[in-house]
Simulated assay, not measured.
Amino acid sequence: MSQQPPAQQQSHPGETGQMQPRPRDEMADYTGRDLLADKKALVSGGDSGIGRAVCAAFAKEGADVAIGYLSEDSDAEHTAELVRRQNRRSLQIRGDVADEQHCHDMVDKTVREFGRIDVLVVHAATQEPVSDFTELSTEQLRRTYEVNVFGAFWTVRAAAPHLAPDASIVITGSVNGLRGNKTLIDYATSKAAVHNLTYSLAQHYMQDGIRVNCVAPGPVWTPLIPSTLGEEKVEGFGEQAPMGRAADPDEIAPSYVFFASNRLSSYYTGEVLAPTGGEIQAG
């Protein structure tokens, strides 16, 4: 981001059009190399932010893309149009991954449309900060885990029978899952859980030739930020990173292309890639 965001706030789940500045999330200057030629991808949380950039990049690499999203119809339609501009098929699937049945339906609709799933990106997530741990309600804790952990589990489990023999699963983690966060305690621990889910699934599916990896970004300027953080946290968002700024989604999406492409990452499974703007992680 060349411009630090000013104070702003939206109702959850947020819309890209209301953000100032607008994030770079369309991979406009990205040139594909057929790394995913004729692949079929499902991206949960694909309507905006990192998910949108991933969908656009996958389409430029030759993939058809199913876009799972919560309720942001206009953002999802814009992302679908980015896919169609590359002469690739798109499919929009509306619903909440906190609902187990929806996770199954999302997979089933993708398979009916595309025939199989070569790349599964489990990206949908939610967060809500609290200033005091005792304010973290059971309802919020349950909601965070249902979306971020159960939703990931249910989606992978539903997709497993439909995955191609050389399929790739990419789960979105977070730098907060690597080092914690004092005001995003439920979110940070949920992301630590999906990091371990990555390790465990990678071992489980090794013999089947299915690779499972994780991208754990640092601060990224997406609609989730102004729709979940207070104005004082949004202003200057990301300046705590060593690079002094948040990333745009376009800067994170190539990590997903890397893991999705067997040509690039055939020897990678059980890895957590952390594009964090220079924050060094131990281990």
Rank of each mutant, 00 (worst) to 15 (best):
S2N: 10
A7R: 09
S11T: 04
P13W: 07
E15Q: 10
T16R: 06
G17Y: 10
P21T: 02
R22Q: 15
D29E: 14
T31I: 10
L36M: 13
A37F: 13
K39W: 06
A41Q: 08
G46D: 12
D47N: 14
I50H: 12
A53K: 09
A57W: 09
A57D: 04
F58H: 08
E61M: 05
G62V: 05
G62W: 07
D64T: 05
G68E: 09
S71R: 12
D73C: 00
D73V: 13
E81G: 05
E81I: 05
L82W: 11
Q86I: 04
R89V: 01
S90G: 08
L91D: 00
E100A: 14
D105G: 01
K109F: 06
V111N: 09
V121L: 04
T126A: 06
S131F: 02
F133K: 00
L136Q: 07
T138W: 02
L141T: 08
L141V: 02
R143V: 01
V149W: 09
A152Q: 09
T155S: 11
V156G: 01
V156T: 12
R157I: 03
R157V: 06
R157K: 15
A158L: 05
H162W: 07
H162G: 02
A164E: 11
S168E: 06
I169G: 13
V170K: 13
V170E: 11
I171L: 14
T172R: 12
G177L: 12
G177F: 14
R179K: 15
G180N: 15
N181H: 15
Y187W: 13
A188T: 12
T189W: 10
S190H: 11
K191G: 11
K191D: 10
V194Y: 13
N196V: 10
A202I: 12
Y205W: 15
D208E: 14
D208A: 12
N213L: 02
N213P: 11
C214H: 05
P217I: 03
G218D: 03
G218P: 04
P226H: 01
E232V: 00
K233N: 06
G238P: 08
E239Y: 00
M243Q: 09
A246I: 01
A247Q: 01
A247L: 07
D248I: 00
D250C: 01
F258E: 02
R263M: 07
L264T: 00
S265A: 15
E271Y: 06
V272F: 04
V272M: 02
L273V: 08
P275L: 06
G278C: 07
E279Q: 12
E279H: 08
E279D: 03
